[in-house]
Design a protein around this nucleic acid. Structure first.
Lengths: 159, 159
DNA sequence: GACAAATCGTTCGGTACCTAGCAATATTCG
DNA sequence: CGAATATTGCTAGGTACCGAACGATTTGTC
């Protein structure tokens, strides 16, 4: 992101969004390290445990992650024997993901990561939190809009 | 981050922080793609152009990036011939980074990335923006504190 | 002066993210 | 029906991040 410019940048909301993201990931990964899984792998296990077998395609949408990315994450879990990946009989293009017995066993040992979110925003005023969500959401949308327009119009940042 | 849980998570401030970070990076990278450099590589060029030759050690602190990470970024820039890395005569452990003529030439062609930050938060109320920074900063700090304590106390999330 | 400790950069292995392009399979439409 | 199109997942190659371990060098201390 290169957001640590002296000027407006190192104290900007964007820079803090990045820092929070990395701090949050660092906590999750330090908690998960002993179990040898990463933060997104954790979510896949969460999903498969709580909602049962899921199509890889649908999981990608829930996670908002590209197919290529999820492909790597799933293959890591399959390699570790925690998840089973089988072709869907109805549509051979799709893959069905299912947690294995070994995956379920690991899941039961895992600490509750939801506490991290609680820890981060503990005691913050609800109205302020709502403002944060509103502003970040709006900013994200503006950037994403810009991104789509760019494809059509060329690069508006370079007049 | 695995922050897209149905429950409180996919609408939480933490999840939006992640989304904003990635949206912001996506915009930067789409702008920089034609020039074949990444967002952090851009910052290194920015620094070397504006503040002159810099120690790799100091650059790491400015960017708040681990030595291992910066090492890779610098070697990518050196490979592309944009940056020159030489040992500091005074302290042979340290490396001095300097932009090359070719790097300077590229820099002059690059669009102004500062506009991205402006675009994202355009028209947002200043007071709200201040709240966002305050909350994100506090949350980051809580997580980082937790991280340091964890090393001493073991894992407080797992009672 | 010599040995221990700290610092700096690199390499290695891992996670998570992306685009681009490919192969296999489904679907749509003439 | 059969050809064009869309969807799904994969690989390859790139960026950006981390921790751990290693070598080289400097600093601190006895």
């Amino acid at each position: 992101m290169a957001n640590e410019l002296q000027d407006p940048r190192h104290s900007s909301a964007g820079a803090w969004a990045k820092r929070l993201y990395f701090a949050s990931r660092a906590v999750m990964e330090s908690v998960l390290r002993p179990y040898d899984i990463g933060s997104t792998q954790w979510y896949v296990l969460y999903q498969l445990t709580n909602d049962g077998p899921t199509m890889q395609r649908d999981l990608g949408r829930m996670l908002q992650v590209e197919r290529a990315t999820l492909s790597g994450i799933v293959s890591a879990l399959v390699r570790k024997g925690l998840v089973e990946q089988t072709p869907d009989p109805a549509d051979q293009r799709q893959r069905m993901l299912r947690i294995t017995a070994s995956g379920l066993k690991l899941w039961d040992e895992l600490p509750d990561l939801a506490l991290i979110e609680a820890l981060a925003f503990d005691g913050v005023d609800a109205a302020e939190l709502a403002t944060v969500v509103k502003v970040l959401q709006a900013a994200t949308q503006r950037l994403n809009n810009h991104l789509s327009k760019e494809i059509v119009d060329g690069d508006p940042l370079q007049p």
